[in-house]
Design a protein around this nucleic acid. Structure first.
Lengths: 211, 211
DNA sequence: ATAAAAATGTTGCATTTGCAACATTTTGGT
DNA sequence: ACCAAAATGTTGCAAATGCAACATTTTTAT
């Protein structure tokens, strides 16, 4: 889904030199491990080489909300603009390899030495634009007033991205409820209604929009 | 509130030359006028010289949602990552002057000629980061499960930004309800509860957090 | 200054949603 | 293949929210 990659237009040779220059470090994480606690300072950004992770928030009631999902080539970290209010965490949802780099180094320090600086900066702009777009989608969904509307807006968004009326949920239903910030059983009830009323067909995680 | 400005670190002299080179056009709008319909193509971005405007969405039920508020020095437009699904519009909330520029020109074409290109690019990164942060705040608010929690999260956000327990709402209550995506009368009821229970003090738009 | 329009405050009632509790199915690990 | 854990499905009931309708206050335009 993510088209932009911080290393777009930088070949493997250049990339290797760049990583040395950036003092980048690769760390492996097992599924369920906490990634963000391994980030020492707020100017560190993480780049997912392989695997996946979630950005989570637990509020004081214990409610969990999935704020973002990260996959291969995604970048995360405070400098890429996650409000750092302490209750956030990034958890590996599968075994994954993460490359840690220093943001300031990436953006500023290289400026004089490194010919790939301009390319990196343009990639960062694209990553940020992409992120803003995804957040816009999320906001569109969350501002819908009912569970039904939230579900349909969410389904439409996926359908548009996949350019298909049929698609597979990238979530368990339990996680989807957290993502939409609604009660799981109420969501389950509403999905049943949508099915009964002929709006959608659904087998497991495979959903087809019938409208 | 917005600290970053696309013309940061570019002096007036340089700015003038830049605007000529960018083929920038200034247009004045009266309060309530539609700004976005004046944007011809999606690579145009608007810069608010003075005044204010809202990015609005009307859904098929006629519900209005305020997606973003723009003030002096803010920048908006598709290239700065607003999902362009047709139902969006930017409306002047006061008389305002808007400077229209071509985004590609700003980012790419100038590259060889214009020494301020690097500065502009860094400013764009800051603007995007800032936008991601604001959207994060919005998402934090919208994912709260109850009207009470949404209100408190919103008040806390403003309070943090102003570094004060007392602040003035930048909204009418009617608009605030649209921003929080909740029913106005229900919100009004809950604000009364918060007041009665001693969580907040409120006179008009002046709110003080008492916790 | 005045009238009209918009915003705010308030309340009863219908509806939706959340919650709890439990049954059933699927998944993951050994 | 088996067990345990997680996910899913289901439902009655309580609580929160939305809706409608109206009164009151504030804002805006002339």
């Amino acid at each position: 889904m993510t088209e932009v990659n911080i290393f777009n237009n930088i070949n493997e040779e250049e990339k290797k030199r760049l990583l040395t220059c950036l003092n980048a470090k690769k760390i492996n994480f097992k599924k369920e491990q906490s990634i963000i606690s391994n980030i020492q300072n707020t100017s560190t950004i993480g780049y997912i080489i392989s695997g996946s992770a979630d950005l989570l928030r637990y509020d004081f009631n214990g409610y969990r909300t999935i704020l973002e999902k990260y996959n291969e080539n995604d970048v995360f970290g405070d400098m890429l603009a996650n409000t750092n209010n302490g209750e956030l965490m990034v958890i590996a949802t599968s075994d994954c390899e993460v490359l840690f780099m220093d943001y300031d180094h990436l953006i500023n320090k290289c400026k004089k030495n490194c010919p790939y600086h301009t390319t990196i900066v343009n990639n960062v702009i694209n990553i940020l634009s992409d992120k803003v777009n995804k957040q816009n989608e999320r906001i569109e969904i969350l501002t819908k007033r009912s569970i039904r509307e939230k579900l349909l807006e969410y389904f439409n968004t996926i359908s548009k991205n996949k350019i298909s009326k049929t698609f597979y949920l990238p979530f368990t239903f339990t996680d989807l409820a957290d993502y939409l910030s609604i009660d799981r059983s109420s969501m389950s009830r509403e999905i049943k209604n949508l099915k009964d009323e002929g709006f959608i067909a659904i087998q497991g995680k495979r959903i087809t929009l019938l409208y």
